[in-house]
Design a protein around this nucleic acid. Structure first.
Length: 914
RNA sequence: GGGCGAAUAACUCAGUUGGUAGAGUGCAACCCUUACAAGGUUGAAGUCACAGGUUCGAGCCCUGUCUCGCCCACCA
């Protein structure tokens, strides 16, 4: 490939799919079951099969992909386990909606045919999200892709259920649960979203049975009054004394109910009288339990009033509320209604208002499991990053409620419990029984409920690796190295995996849990369809390329901070991709077909190439101490090494923005801005063949390392460039991340970095004068540099042509005398003790120059004042560490020197004007 | 009611053992200099939310206040 084939601007179209397919064909994503290499593993948070890729997925996948690709470059055996979740309620809802379009309900279809329909839907469109993950570049081991309803995973679910049941950690019982009347299923507490609601507090008279008076209760839910089986008052409430033997008449039904006393009742709220509905309110349920009250259900599974609501039977619960209030008003029993804000629970899948309802359900006794899961983090077996999330994690686990795991839907893992209709025997089995193990009757049937989706995803880290079989995969990769997820499923998923993992594997499921932030819009608002501020990741990828998009996510993914996404930002990083692309083009121009010209230079070797690499042009840095290497070359090699270190430490510490910024800064502002510019002179053969080859060897080395370092962030463009480079072979995925232990990589040199800083400052100083004085960029300047510092003199001498080239000079003169030999008409500057004189052919604008110098002097003077203040402060001198004092003194010296020189030049200007 | 987090340049954000504030975008000026105008050079711009405290020294540590965001909770 030649540089001709690289277009002027980078266009990701076509390139991304090409390389993704190449990686798959080469099997680069496939993990080894057993290997001598260090194992590194991550399980993907399985997206719902119904899912459509959103920004949250994109961030989550990008982070994991960065980690996995980085570990591969470090030589690890990496398993990134992918898959999808069957998402019980969500998926069932989607399929039900599809059927509704054809006018079919699931009841018409029947359970078995409905489930067939769900599978058919899954086969046909359920994999969409997987393809979307591939668009981002996810390097998952797709050969191992799992689905929570797969045979193996379903077996694991059964085994876990049976064991927990036998260990008395699963039980069935009648309790108040959250019921979604639309989905017609129970929900766990976590699956209910509470939203603030503007409602009313109704004050309703409950007349005493004997007498004319009445108790006034306050309620937000009058429709549940048909299920009241008592009213409760606080025994300490002075307003309600001597009511011991009284009873009240429930309006609208005229049922007589008792008055109970309980300190639970808040005397401050409403009237201090509480209606008690044990079948439709969790608190009332507890009161009912305590006082032996009847539990009367008045709302059925679809949210319709039942026979206990008398004439309101068959009416929707909310309609009933309005009607009951009207009826009470007519009867003169409604005292008043006032506005009240309260929170109302909604189904997290369909947003329907949930009904707290008495129901017989299956529960996991969560306490014992939660304790182990919490302790594992307390003991440091699993780290939560950032660590402040650990507190939230503990808070939830330490106060955990039992987990309602049964769902009255059809799509999911059916609960492995059978009942004998002959003798009533209950069987909890891993393998379907065909007869009762008590009486032998074949008249048995399986529990119709299925399990909460999160029950199976709780097993994900080990069920995907083949548990309960003792597989090589489990031995190699469990516990997994890290879990990457959003905080929104910390309780749903992470905590439960911790509970199940510790219980069934005896080991935590992951060593690290990295909790990343939410992706919001550019104003920090949550993206939502209703707000219309959703940015579609796939559209962004289409417009700007996956690499730019990924880099944007990484660059903004600071720990504990939400990512604000906007097209403008992606555009900025698209420009970075383009910058890299053009740097690569430049590199290729200078690396290809040049080997032959270099004669017998020791710096160019092609002898030891492998057969398939016979055409590789190999530039190697064989002896960095050779004088043919310039200072800027030593410098860029040192900076490259430092950057590799910064990038890897950023990734290892989950500080992806640090890594991204380090590499961005290096590539753009060190490599492109300075090194490439510095190298041009040698590369364009202005310094002889030896210098040219030296530069080419450095260029080859640094570009190669840049491509490798960037690969985890920008896999596609780096692969494209890699294949175009004449100096490397194979895939960038087969390369090694530049590291200190690389014998080829011991270029860190702090002195050189400092020296280069001086040269850069000098050039910037000259450019500053050019800019500030409005000197034509094309005009070649004559500059005199004056310094008495020996090191600076040597650096200037060694880099004369560099300074000349980068500041566009006609001549550069080094002087160690004072201003005596300075040209008459000149602009001046002071950089780190060196004075710059830019002589001008035309007479300079004295006013302008004086203003400029005065401004500079002003700045220096201010700094000097503040610094001198510190140095005259005795307690500072006394108490501050010596090195700090020393540093400040040096600074003062430098500033004084600069001030003196500036003053001198200002005086000179003043004289000239006269 | 409990808990967590944020506040730094016009905007979005970095700032990891306390040493006197940085980047990107945007803005202004100049430049099509043979990798890149999706570019280059230069420049302007901040009492680091407020009030105290610790310290020689605080964007950073401590206390309190204000504003905003989020999570949890059985607020009839």
């Amino acid at each position: 490939m030649s540089s001709d084939s690289l277009e002027k601007g980078y266009d990701p179209t076509g390139i991304e799919d090409k390389w993704y397919k190449y990686w798959l064909d080469k099997g680069f994503f496939v993990a080894e079951d057993k290997s001598d290499k260090q194992a590194y593993s991550i399980v993907i948070p399985p997206p719902n099969v119904t899912g459509v890729l959103h920004m949250g997925h994109a961030l989550n996948i990008t982070i994991q992909d960065i980690m996995c690709r980085f570990r591969r470059l470090c030589g690890d055996n990496v398993l990134w386990m992918p898959g999808t979740d069957h998402a019980g309620i969500a998926t069932q809802n989607v399929v039900e909606k599809n059927l509704a379009l054809q006018g079919i309900t699931r009841d018409q279809l029947g359970r078995e045919k409905f489930i067939d329909a769900v599978w058919a839907w899954k086969e046909q469109s359920g994999g969409a999200i997987i393809n979307q993950l591939k668009k981002i570049g996810a390097s998952c081991d797709w050969e191992r892709e799992r689905f929570t309803m797969d045979k193996g995973l379903s077996d694991a679910v059964r085994k876990v259920f049976v064991r927990l049941y036998k260990d008395n950690l699963i039980y069935q019982g009648q309790y108040i649960i959250n019921w979604c009347p639309r989905c017609r299923t129970a929900l766990a507490d976590l699956e209910v979203d509470h939203e603030e609601n503007e409602g009313f507090l109704y004050y309703i008279k409950y007349p005493f049975v004997n007498g004319t008076d009445a108790l006034v209760v306050a309620t937000t839910r009058p429709e549940t009054m048909f299920g009241d089986t008592a009213v409760a008052i606080n025994p300490n409430d002075e307003r309600y004394k001597n009511l011991e033997h009284k009873r009240v008449m429930l309006p609208l039904t005229n049922r007589i109910i008792p008055i109970i006393h309980d300190e639970y009742v808040d005397t401050q709220f409403g009237t201090g009288v509480l209606k008690v509905t044990p079948a439709h309110d969790p608190n009332d349920f507890n009161l009912g339990e305590k006082h032996g009250l009847e539990r009367l259900k008045v709302i059925d599974d679809e949210g319709i009033m039942n026979e206990n609501a008398g004439e309101y039977m068959g009416i929707d619960r909310f309609k009933c509320r309005t009607m009951a209030v009207e009826a009470l008003e007519k009867l003169g029993l409604l005292v008043k209604k006032e506005h009240l804000k309260n929170s109302v629970g909604h189904c997290y899948r369909c947003k329907t208002v949930v009904e707290p309802s008495l129901s017989r359900q299956w529960f996991v006794k969560a306490g014992p499991l939660a304790k182990v899961a919490a302790d594992a983090v307390r003991d440091g077996k699993t780290r939560i990053i950032p660590s402040n999330w650990a507190k939230t994690y503990f808070e939830w686990l330490d106060n955990i409620q039992d987990w309602c795991i049964s769902r009255q839907i059809w799509w999911g893992h059916r609960i492995p419990v059978w009942r004998c209709h002959t003798c009533g025997q209950v069987m909890v089995e891993e393998v379907d029984p065909d007869k009762c193990d008590g009486c032998g009757s074949v008249d048995i049937s399986q529990e119709t409920d299925v399990l909460d989706t999160w029950f199976s995803s709780a097993l994900w880290p080990f069920s995907t690796m083949g548990w309960p079989e003792e597989t090589d995969l489990l031995k190699t990769f469990y516990p997994t190295s890290a879990l990457v997820t959003g905080f929104d499923i910390l309780f749903f998923w992470v905590a439960r995996m911790m509970m199940m993992g510790t219980r069934f594997m005896g080991e935590v499921p992951f060593k690290d849990v990295y909790i990343h932030a939410l992706v919001r819009d550019e104003h920090g608002k949550k993206m939502s369809k209703s707000k219309g501020n959703v940015i579609d990741p796939l559209k962004i990828i289409d417009s700007y390329g996956a690499d730019a998009f990924r880099f944007t996510l990484a660059a903004f993914a600071a720990q504990g901070r939400d990512v604000r996404m906007s097209e403008e930002r992606v555009e900025g990083y698209r420009n970075f991709v383009n910058k890299l692309w053009n740097a690569a083009r430049f590199t290729m121009m200078h690396l290809e077909n040049g080997a032959g010209q270099s004669g017998n230079s020791v710096l160019v070797q092609s002898g030891d190439a492998e057969p398939e690499d016979a055409n590789l042009i190999q530039f190697k840095i064989t002896n960095i101490a050779d004088k043919s290497y310039s200072m800027s070359e030593h410098w860029i090699l040192s900076r490259s090494a430092a950057t590799a270190e910064a990038v890897s430490s950023g990734i290892e510490n989950y500080r992806f923005n640090d890594s991204a910024n380090a590499i961005y800064q290096f590539v753009w502002h060190e490599f492109c801005d300075w090194y490439l510019e510095a190298a041009k002179s040698a590369l364009y053969e202005k310094e002889g063949q030896k210098r040219r080859d030296a530069s080419r060897s450095v260029l080859a080395k640094v570009v190669k390392d840049i491509i490798i370092m960037l690969h985890p962030f920008m896999p596609f463009v780096t692969e494209e460039i890699w294949h175009a480079l004449p100096t490397v072979s194979g895939s960038v995925m087969e390369a090694s991340f530049p590291a200190d232990n690389d014998p080829d990589y011991t270029f860190r040199n702090l002195q050189v970095e400092k020296d280069m800083e001086f040269i850069v400052a000098l050039i910037s100083g000259i450019r500053n004068i050019r800019g500030e004085m409005n000197i034509q960029p094309s005009l070649q300047l004559n500059v005199i540099l004056q310094t008495s510092d020996q090191l600076q003199k040597r650096l200037i001498t060694d880099n004369t042509s560099l300074i000349e080239n980068l500041s566009r000079l006609e001549s550069l003169t080094l002087s160690d005398s004072d201003t005596a030999d300075a040209p008459v008409s000149c602009a001046t500057g002071v950089v780190m003790g060196t004075t710059i004189y830019v002589s001008l052919k035309e007479v300079i604008n004295f006013d302008k120059e004086e203003t400029r110098l005065e401004k500079e002097l002003d700045k220096v003077t201010k700094e000097l004042i503040s610094i001198s203040k510190r140095l005259t402060n005795e307690s500072f001198l006394d108490k501050a560490p010596d090195d700090v004092v020393e540093k400040v003194k040096e600074q003062q010296q430098m500033l004084q020197d600069k001030r003196d020189k500036l003053t001198l030049n200002i005086n000179k200007i003043k004289q000239m004007r006269l």
